Amino acid sequence: GGILALVAFYMELPVWSIMVVLLIRSAGTAFHSPAFNAATPMIVPKEELTKCAGYTQTMQAVSAIISPAAAAFLYAVWPLNAIILLDIVGAILACVTVAISSIPTPELCPETKRQQFLQDMKEGYVVLKQNRGLFALLWIGVIYMFFYMPISTLFPLISMSYFKGTPAHASAAEIAFAVGMLLGGVILSIWGGFK
Rank of each mutant, 00 (worst) to 15 (best):
V15I: 07
I65K: 06
I151E: 07
S171K: 03
F73I: 13
I143H: 07
A94T: 01
N81D: 15
G133H: 08
L134E: 11
Q119E: 15
A172F: 08
A178H: 07
P68S: 02
Y162I: 14
K51V: 00
G2D: 07
T40I: 12
V62E: 09
I66Y: 04
P68R: 01
A176F: 11
F155H: 01
K164V: 05
T166D: 06
L137S: 14
A136R: 12
L108E: 02
F163T: 03
M59Q: 02
T50V: 13
P34R: 01
A61Q: 04
P167F: 11
Q115E: 15
V127C: 08
C52K: 05
L49N: 06
K46V: 08
Y125F: 15
Q116P: 00
F135A: 12
P156Y: 05
I84F: 03
Q60D: 05
L134Q: 06
S26C: 05
G28E: 01
K129S: 15
V179D: 04
L128C: 09
E107C: 10
I140Q: 10
F117H: 08
Y144T: 13
A99C: 08
E174H: 07
F155V: 05
G185S: 07
L74T: 11
K164L: 10
L137C: 14
T40Y: 06
I18M: 12
F146N: 06
I92P: 05
M149H: 04
V21T: 02
K129M: 14
F36I: 08
F9P: 09
I140E: 12
G124I: 07
G180Q: 05
G193H: 02
V15W: 09
L183C: 09
A53I: 13
G141V: 14
E48R: 15
Y125S: 12
P14G: 07
G133W: 04
G180P: 01
V98C: 03
L182G: 09
G180M: 10
F155A: 02
E107H: 14
A72D: 08
Q57L: 15
Y148G: 05
N81E: 15
C109Y: 09
A5P: 00
Y144H: 12
L4V: 02
I88G: 11
W16K: 03
M181L: 15
A72Q: 11
G180N: 09
I66M: 10
V127Q: 01
I88S: 13
S152A: 09
F194R: 15
L138K: 01
F9S: 15
A170H: 00
A82M: 12
M59R: 11
Y162T: 13
Q57E: 12
K122H: 10
L6V: 07
R132T: 13
A69G: 07
R25N: 08
Y10V: 12
A168I: 01
P79C: 07
L4D: 00
V186A: 13
A64I: 04
V15A: 06
L128M: 12
Q60N: 10
P167Y: 10
I66C: 11
P106Q: 05
P45M: 09
T58Q: 00
L80Y: 04
L13D: 02
F9C: 14
G2C: 05
